[in-house]
Design a protein around this nucleic acid. Structure first.
Length: 681
DNA sequence: GGTGAATTCAG
DNA sequence: TGAATTCAC
């Protein structure tokens, strides 16, 4: 079945190419495969309800809209057009399109976020059952997550090791391919197209400005890449630490939507690298290495997510679950508004809400302030980034926030607090960035721009700054934040030790194991919904029959856990493993009978109206932030979540799969024993 | 040119 | 904060 090789040559077969975050025609393996088979029906399904909380934010939807229009016009010039469907269930929409076009094949490219892993596996199974030949490909990564392992076949747990391995693989990432010259159109006229609505009237106004700064779409992405590589790249290593830097590539939104192939980026970078190495241009070489590293972090985010598909919800290091987060919605509001009293933080937050963009360094600054100074739960910050960033990307953002909050073995030191005042002089030495985003401080001399609270009164007066009036005093003093952090960490270690002792004594079943404790709910004001009426997901026969969703087996944790696993399990794993990469079609996601779960009927909550707003909007919405929605807002990626929340239940009649699923989660609930690795206090 | 101080920077 | 590297003498 999945080993079957498609016979090429356009023998009257029609293939659906299901586009998701691979909105390009160049170096798109799914599209290329479809073109080889015969007629093509390009399809995009807009089913944001499937994303749960992670309904795309306003700017992200704006980008998607432009990108799809661009893709459609490319298809039109090649002889077909993009079919668009509005849906609450991608799989049933796929079936509709199969039926109306008489397609025999379905091709798509892999995604690695947890929801997609489940949905895609389900799509594969259901459509295969219907006699459709389904193939999926790697279009998003240099190497598939399961290709990168240490000498023992285990996945890496630190970035540096992972990336070294990637850079020293015995084979290169697949070379990028050219776009097809011509496409034989499938019977797209037989298929009704839904008009997709990505913005409401109020959002349109705010979105208008975006088009001045950004050009979504795959061929624009390509131009941006070429321009970056032939221009600012060489200076990347010297400039990349300045908040205002013109050396940023600005490629991340293009990469998020797959308008750009990382493999193409990689190949072009490698060429430059060789060139500069030959010329002895060390700055250039260093720049390439540094930029490659950021590509590597993106790879790593998918890798981590694939191996631990709850990283957007749970810390990877076990002890973090004992950290006493400060659940203070007022702090959260002040941070979002850019009114913390620390100019660099505030400038960043205002830039983010005004433009949907933030320089990488400044993301670290504001996130670090959020987690270490305010001690707010990192998932809130991640959610806000998700809602506001143009390049919002679940895997990358989860990795970033976990890094900042000390939840990874190679995170920043837990007890380290960066002082925004010093960071200010580092990343914005002349205060230009702060002056641009904080007009109330514009006239303050550079000497005081990053610490106005120390400025002499006459200086403040001359600059028209009234602390506490038109610019706030620091919300918290850094020194006391440090003390508070120490206390919190002490408490965390104490609780962790108690829990460990309890487990070792066998007295308690893992006191407070994070898989059983509901995560802190998001505050209401970022969760308020204003979405299209949800359609009933379970109305059609297929959805009802296949209510149970599936996740592809996570190869690594399965193997790593092999001492506890039965040989039967391992065998089935090994067998499936062998069917993974195929030439010329690289069939991928492992097919070993996957674990199943079912989710209950509570409709997912999402957030559509939280995009960029003006100050009044935010202030207004946060005034209702007190009333917290009871519990059930957070989807939890574990079999035994609290009953009030959206929940996944292990299917009992499927012993093999459920046991492997549990096994995987038992393993991950040990949280890698990374706690030992990261004892750094 | 060797040594401690200062600085840089962190996946 | 701490290791690594550069700087000043």
């Amino acid at each position: 079945m999945s080993n079957e090789v498609v016979s090429g040559g356009g023998g009257g077969c029609t293939s659906i190419v299901w586009f998701r975050r691979d909105l390009r025609i160049e170096d798109n393996p799914a599209l290329a495969a479809a073109v080889r088979v015969g007629a093509v029906v390009p399809l995009f399904i807009w089913a944001p309800e499937e994303e749960g909380h992670y309904y795309p934010g306003r700017v992200s939807r704006w980008w998607l809209k432009q990108s799809l229009a661009h893709l459609d016009s490319s298809f039109k010039s090649l002889g077909t057009s993009l079919i668009t469907k509005r849906s609450t269930d991608s799989v049933s929409s796929l079936i509709d399109v199969v039926k109306s076009t008489g397609a025999t094949h379905l091709f798509f490219n892999h995604l690695y976020d947890p929801l997609s892993l489940v949905r895609d596996q389900r799509a594969k199974e259901i459509l295969t059952d219907l006699g459709i030949i389904v193939r999926s490909f790697n279009a998003d990564l240099l190497y598939e997550p399961w290709e990168i392992n240490d000498d023992h076949g285990h996945p890496f747990t630190t970035f540096t090791e992972f990336w070294n391995k990637c850079l020293n693989m015995p084979y290169d990432p697949a070379a990028p391919t050219l776009p097809p010259k011509r496409i034989i159109s499938g019977d797209v006229l037989q298929c009704s197209c839904d008009k997709l609505i990505f913005e409401n009237e109020t959002e349109k106004g705010s979105n208008a400005l975006l088009a001045r700064a950004w050009s979504p779409g795959w061929s624009n992405a390509d131009k941006a890449l070429t321009a970056f590589i032939s221009g600012p790249l060489i200076e990347y290593s010297v400039n990349c630490r300045k908040a205002d830097s013109a050396t940023t590539s600005f490629l991340s939104p293009h990469l998020h939507f797959g308008e750009l192939s990382v493999r193409k980026v990689f190949h072009l970078l490698r060429i430059k690298q060789m060139l500069w190495a030959n010329e002895g241009n060390t700055t250039g070489e260093e720049s390439v290495n540094l930029f490659l590293k950021s590509i590597g972090l993106r790879e790593y985010s998918r890798y981590i997510n694939f191996n631990h598909p709850y990283t957007h919800e749970k810390p990877l290091l076990g002890h973090l679950k004992f950290f006493p987060w400060v659940v203070d919605e007022n702090y959260f509001k002040v941070w979002r508004l850019g009114r913390t009293g620390y100019p660099l933080v505030d400038a960043g937050m205002r830039e983010l809400w005004a433009t949907g963009w933030l320089h990488d360094r400044i993301r670290v600054v504001v996130a670090s302030f959020f987690v270490k100074v305010l001690q707010l739960p990192w998932r809130w910050g991640m959610k806000y980034f998700w809602d506001t960033l143009l390049d919002a990307d679940l895997e990358s953002d989860a990795l970033g926030w976990q890094y900042i909050s000390g939840s990874l073995p190679d995170s920043r030191a837990l007890d380290r607090i960066d002082n925004p005042q010093f960071e200010g002089y580092k990343f914005d030495p002349n205060g230009e960035y702060v002056r641009r985003w904080l007009p109330e401080l514009a006239r303050l001399p550079t000497e005081w721009i990053h610490h106005p609270w120390n400025a002499p009164e006459p200086v403040l007066q001359a600059a028209g700054v009234e602390l506490g009036m038109n610019y706030p005093l620091p919300i918290l003093e850094i020194g006391s934040a440090k003390d508070r952090l120490q206390e919190s960490l002490a408490e965390m270690w104490q609780l962790e030790a108690a829990s460990r002792a309890a487990i070792e004594n066998g007295t308690e079943e893992g006191l407070g194991d994070s898989s059983d404790s509901a995560p802190i709910a998001f505050p209401q004001d970022i969760m308020d919904v204003d979405h299209e009426p949800a359609r009933n997901v379970n109305t059609n026969a297929f959805a009802r029959r296949h209510q149970d969703q599936m996740v592809p087996s996570m190869t690594s944790s399965f193997l790593r856990n092999s001492d506890e696993s039965s040989s039967e399990h391992r065998e089935s794993y090994e067998n499936s493993r062998q069917e993974v990469p195929q030439e010329p079609l690289r069939e991928t996601l492992n097919q070993r009978s996957p674990p199943t779960f079912r989710h209950n009927n509570s409709p997912p909550q999402f957030n559509i109206n939280m995009g960029l707003r003006n100050v009044e909007d935010i202030a207004e919405s946060s005034s209702i932030s007190r009333s917290t929605r009871g519990g059930g807002v957070v989807p939890i990626w574990c079999p035994s979540s609290s009953s009030s929340s959206e929940q996944f239940v292990v299917e009992e009649n499927d012993t093999e799969s459920s046991s492997s699923y549990l096994q995987r989660h038992q393993h991950t609930n040990e949280l890698i024993d990374w706690r030992r690795l990261s004892r750094a206090r």
